[in-house]
Design a protein around this nucleic acid. Structure first.
Lengths: 158, 158
DNA sequence: TATTGTTATACTCTATAACTATA
DNA sequence: TATAGTTATAGAGTATAACAATA
């Protein structure tokens, strides 16, 4: 038997969120990307080439930490650093064809994970769930696509 | 504009879960407890006095890490270590009256946070959400009240 | 003087292993 | 020999500060 908090909305969201994040990280490993690497690359692809600073602002990652993320993506041939001729202090981060392919595979992983997680509920409930979660994200004033773990909120452990 | 993963069930759950966990840790600080301290204390109260090992198994925390959690709770006067006369290797962890009061306050924090998070949705949706989340926890085979962050899964960062 | 990218340092959290006392 | 609790060490992850190049 568990304790009283176990069925609270807050705990359920936290518990499920941590579980899903862990599952995603595990599945994503196959692409060679870290979750934050995927987040950065995905944004580079959708927004077009951007400076590290711009991406850092966009995702709530500190520019100091962005360096290692880009280093890793570049080492794996998923992005390139291009000198910004307009402002030679900065680099434009550009996705490579391999990067685009890896992101495509990662999106398939997301879709498969969504299906796995929601597997036990019927279509109506699934639609309702999606709608409510989007509403909750909105009312909590969370930015779409920005994961709190990446941002600098110094979050307590559990 | 955000990216494609931003509206996926997996990301929404992960994003909301991290947000709620952070909010909870912040609110809980007022009681002097850490989230994992609250988890342990709450279980001690519901299960009755238990050994550190038993609590570690129950919550998926490694017994090595349990030491510091109990140290903190004991320092703050929320639990006591009682020598187990039946097996003098172990301690029975017992909640103090202060511990019971702190847990009660923490449960009020959970309730208030639930209300804050769900504030924007109507009663029907709230019931549906609770029902679906419980179902998802069950089908993911997560133990009630056991937070993945406490367990030893070596979870990827985001 | 401010900003971009970078590096170095410190701090937190946790995983692993080893120690002690009891069984 | 095994187990409960403890301690020490090392490894991730990240926050802070400082630096070089450029604006």
């Amino acid at each position: 038997m568990a304790t009283r908090y176990a069925a609270s909305l807050s705990f359920l969201l936290s518990q499920l969120g941590a579980h899903v994040a862990h599952r995603f990280g595990t599945e994503l490993a196959e692409t060679g990307m870290s979750p934050r690497g995927f987040g950065v690359l995905s944004n580079v692809i959708d927004l077009g080439p951007r400076t590290q600073q711009h991406l850092a602002d966009e995702l709530g990652i500190h520019r100091n930490n962005m360096v290692a993320v880009i280093d890793e993506l570049e080492r794996d041939g998923l992005v390139q650093r291009i000198r910004n001729t307009a402002d030679r202090r900065s680099f434009l981060i550009q996705a490579t064809p391999d990067g685009v392919r890896a992101t495509s595979r990662a999106m398939n992983i997301v879709t498969a994970l969504d299906a796995e997680i929601a597997g036990s509920i019927d279509g109506d409930s699934r639609e309702t769930l999606d709608r409510i979660l989007l509403e909750l994200v909105k009312s909590a004033q969370l930015s779409p696509g920005v994961h709190p773990h990446l941002t600098s909120q110094r979050s307590p452990q559990s």
